[in-house]
Computed example of a mutant assay.
Amino acid sequence: MYKIAVLGDYDSIYGFATLGLDTFPVSTREEAGEKLHQLTLGDYGIVYVTEALAEELKHEIEKYQELAVPAIIQIPGISGNTGAGVEGVKKSVEQAVGSDIIFGNE
Protein backbone atom coordinates (compact mmCIF):
# COMPACT_ATOMS: atom_id res chain seq x y z
CA MET A 1 0.00 0.00 0.00
CA TYR A 2 1.28 3.44 -0.90
CA LYS A 3 1.88 6.15 1.69
CA ILE A 4 1.31 9.91 1.46
CA ALA A 5 4.07 12.46 2.05
CA VAL A 6 3.89 16.20 2.64
CA LEU A 7 6.92 18.34 1.79
CA GLY A 8 7.35 21.99 2.70
CA ASP A 9 8.26 24.44 5.43
CA TYR A 10 7.51 23.23 8.95
CA ASP A 11 4.80 25.78 9.73
CA SER A 12 2.84 24.85 6.61
CA ILE A 13 2.93 21.07 6.99
CA TYR A 14 3.14 20.12 10.67
CA GLY A 15 -0.65 19.75 10.97
CA PHE A 16 -0.72 16.99 8.35
CA ALA A 17 1.01 14.63 10.79
CA THR A 18 -2.19 14.55 12.88
CA LEU A 19 -3.92 13.07 9.81
CA GLY A 20 -1.40 10.24 9.68
CA LEU A 21 0.58 11.62 6.75
CA ASP A 22 4.38 11.53 6.69
CA THR A 23 5.68 15.09 6.91
CA PHE A 24 9.08 16.23 5.71
CA PRO A 25 9.91 19.79 6.72
CA VAL A 26 12.71 21.35 4.70
CA SER A 27 14.38 24.74 4.96
CA THR A 28 16.53 25.03 1.83
CA ARG A 29 15.95 24.44 -1.86
CA GLU A 30 18.81 21.92 -1.98
CA GLU A 31 17.42 19.95 0.96
CA ALA A 32 13.97 19.99 -0.64
CA GLY A 33 15.25 18.75 -4.00
CA GLU A 34 17.13 15.91 -2.31
CA LYS A 35 14.13 14.92 -0.20
CA LEU A 36 11.78 15.02 -3.21
CA HIS A 37 14.10 12.65 -5.08
CA GLN A 38 14.17 10.26 -2.10
CA LEU A 39 10.37 10.34 -1.85
CA THR A 40 9.94 9.46 -5.52
CA LEU A 41 12.04 6.35 -4.99
CA GLY A 42 10.13 5.24 -1.90
CA ASP A 43 6.69 3.84 -1.15
CA TYR A 44 4.81 7.09 -1.70
CA GLY A 45 1.81 7.25 -4.02
CA ILE A 46 1.19 10.95 -3.39
CA VAL A 47 3.62 13.70 -2.49
CA TYR A 48 2.02 16.99 -1.49
CA VAL A 49 4.34 19.98 -1.92
CA THR A 50 3.57 23.52 -0.75
CA GLU A 51 3.03 25.92 -3.65
CA ALA A 52 5.93 28.16 -2.63
CA LEU A 53 8.33 25.24 -2.50
CA ALA A 54 6.98 23.78 -5.74
CA GLU A 55 7.82 27.06 -7.47
CA GLU A 56 11.42 26.68 -6.31
CA LEU A 57 11.51 23.02 -7.37
CA LYS A 58 9.75 23.53 -10.69
CA HIS A 59 12.45 21.84 -12.80
CA GLU A 60 12.86 18.91 -10.38
CA ILE A 61 9.10 18.32 -10.26
CA GLU A 62 8.90 18.33 -14.07
CA LYS A 63 11.25 15.32 -14.12
CA TYR A 64 8.64 13.26 -12.29
CA GLN A 65 5.45 14.48 -14.01
CA GLU A 66 5.42 11.61 -16.49
CA LEU A 67 5.57 8.98 -13.74
CA ALA A 68 2.31 7.39 -12.65
CA VAL A 69 3.57 7.17 -9.08
CA PRO A 70 4.00 9.29 -7.13
CA ALA A 71 1.51 11.98 -7.99
CA ILE A 72 3.05 15.31 -6.98
CA ILE A 73 0.32 17.73 -5.96
CA GLN A 74 0.73 21.34 -4.88
CA ILE A 75 -1.04 22.61 -1.78
CA PRO A 76 -1.26 26.10 -0.26
CA GLY A 77 1.15 26.91 2.53
CA ILE A 78 0.98 29.48 5.30
CA SER A 79 1.91 32.17 2.81
CA GLY A 80 -1.46 31.72 1.11
CA ASN A 81 -2.96 30.21 -2.00
CA THR A 82 -1.43 31.23 -5.32
CA GLY A 83 -3.78 29.09 -7.40
CA ALA A 84 -0.87 27.05 -8.75
CA GLY A 85 -2.14 23.88 -7.08
CA VAL A 86 -5.58 24.10 -8.64
CA GLU A 87 -4.04 24.93 -12.02
CA GLY A 88 -1.73 21.90 -11.78
CA VAL A 89 -4.60 19.54 -11.01
CA LYS A 90 -6.64 21.09 -13.83
CA LYS A 91 -3.81 20.49 -16.32
CA SER A 92 -3.42 16.89 -15.16
CA VAL A 93 -7.13 16.23 -15.60
CA GLU A 94 -7.07 17.85 -19.05
CA GLN A 95 -4.23 15.54 -20.05
CA ALA A 96 -6.01 12.48 -18.68
CA VAL A 97 -9.45 13.10 -20.18
CA GLY A 98 -8.57 15.29 -23.13
CA SER A 99 -10.61 18.34 -22.19
CA ASP A 100 -11.30 20.93 -19.52
CA ILE A 101 -13.86 19.62 -17.05
CA ILE A 102 -14.36 22.91 -15.22
CA PHE A 103 -17.04 24.96 -16.94
CA GLY A 104 -17.97 28.58 -16.34
CA ASN A 105 -15.19 29.34 -13.87
CA GLU A 106 -13.00 31.32 -16.25
Rank of each mutant, 00 (worst) to 15 (best):
K35Q: 12
Y64A: 05
K63W: 07
T40H: 05
A52V: 12
E30D: 15
Y64G: 06
T50M: 08
E62Q: 15
G45M: 02
Y44F: 10
Y48I: 01
D43G: 02
E31Q: 07
V26L: 03
L53V: 01
L41P: 08
H59Q: 15
V26P: 04
V49S: 05
S27P: 03
Y48G: 00
I61F: 03
L57A: 07
I46P: 01
R29D: 15
T50F: 07
T28I: 07
K63M: 09
R29G: 12
E30H: 06
E62T: 14
H37E: 11
T28D: 05
L57H: 05
I61L: 09
E60H: 10
A54Y: 00
E31Y: 08
E30L: 13
L53Y: 04
S27C: 09
E51M: 08
Y64C: 06
E34C: 06
K63E: 13
H37Y: 13
E51C: 10
K35H: 08
H59N: 15
G42R: 14
T40R: 04
E62N: 14
E56Q: 12
T50Y: 07
L41C: 14
G33D: 03
K58N: 10
K63C: 09
V47N: 00
G42Y: 04
T50A: 06
V26F: 03
K58I: 11
Q38V: 13
H59K: 15
E55H: 15
T40I: 05
V26M: 03
Y44V: 01
E31F: 10
T28F: 09
E30W: 12
E30P: 07
G33A: 10
R29F: 13
Y64W: 09
L57W: 01
L39T: 02
K58L: 14
G33M: 03
S27D: 06
E60K: 07
I61C: 06
V47F: 00
V49I: 05
D43S: 06
Y44S: 03
I61V: 08
Q38L: 11
G42A: 14
E62K: 14
V49H: 08
G42K: 13
H37S: 12
L41N: 13
E31V: 06
L41F: 13
L57M: 06
G45I: 02
L39D: 00
I46R: 00
I46E: 01
Y44L: 03
